[in-house]
Design a binder for these strands. Structure first.
Lengths: 140, 140
DNA sequence: CGTCTTTTTTGACAAAGTCCAAAACTCGAC
DNA sequence: GTCGAGTTTTGGACTTTGTCAAAAAAGACG
């Protein structure tokens, strides 16, 4: 992975302390929410406004530098790993999120049977289940 | 499809005007949001509180009578069609949502390669794209 | 008809984001 | 280096979607 500063320059984004810190936070905390990331950034550079976190996350997402996922009943989560068509495994009870590689080759379900005339550009798959920790806590 | 009144009785839910109207609204407006449904119900029975719409939608969802889907950047949507493992096609620009049958047989992607110890109970697939109308509006 | 339970309503509240204007900063030109 | 134009960042108000809790209304049943 290229370092954060280079990444920003490559996308014609002025380099600021906030952007570097957010980018690093996303890298170190995959699947974290905006709030989690704000917290992580504060640990690193002391202070950042809520709005800036959103600004940065939005611009990075728009440029395709990071990816936003929004599973049901969760606020948006962000990740570093882009462009490799991977999917997610989400725990229904605690929200723990893991990456999973595509089940069926490259772009698995990209071809819907009946596409209703839509031009499809992505097939997003979320596997819902219970993570090991929650399985242990609930049913032995 | 069984009629709304019978459906409610089968699930030990007292039959009320609000429940009947919401259930009918979901049936007639697949993929509608809570707000859309409240509006539809008001057309039918005159008035209903916002809270009641949520109450009814929640109880119906819990009983498995209807299903809630929550695509990114949209409030929750509800549908009638349950228990047949179908997926959705969502337009990125207008939010239009269509049903699509499972791409690969019954439970297509239900087996993730690396399940990280999770007990998986559902594979949710959302195909993202552009609907015919939006394709026409943008690129001629 | 009167009581008891379940629903519905009302109104306050919470979380996640966005909008806007002012202040601070970045970066290239000098 | 320093300056200035154009971006970013900030702070605060606001919106949207949904939940909580208590009071009022509606059904069920003896």
């Amino acid at each position: 992975m290229t370092d954060p500063e280079t990444t920003l320059r490559q996308h014609d984004l002025p380099v600021t302390a906030q952007r570097l810190a957010v980018l690093r936070a996303v890298s170190h905390h995959p699947h974290a929410t905006a709030d989690d990331l704000a917290e992580a950034v504060r640990q690193e550079i002391g202070t950042i406004s809520r709005q800036s976190v959103y600004n940065v996350l939005n611009v990075l997402t728009d440029k395709g530098i990071i990816r936003r996922i929004q599973p049901a009943d969760s606020s948006a989560r962000y990740e570093d790993r882009v462009g490799d068509n991977h999917h997610h495994l989400v725990c229904r009870s605690c929200g723990k999120t893991e990456d999973v590689n595509c089940a069926v080759g490259e772009a698995p379900c990209l071809h819907a049977h009946d596409h209703h005339g839509f031009r499809i550009d992505e097939a997003e798959v979320i596997y819902w289940g219970t993570c090991p920790a929650c399985q242990r806590r609930r049913a032995p």
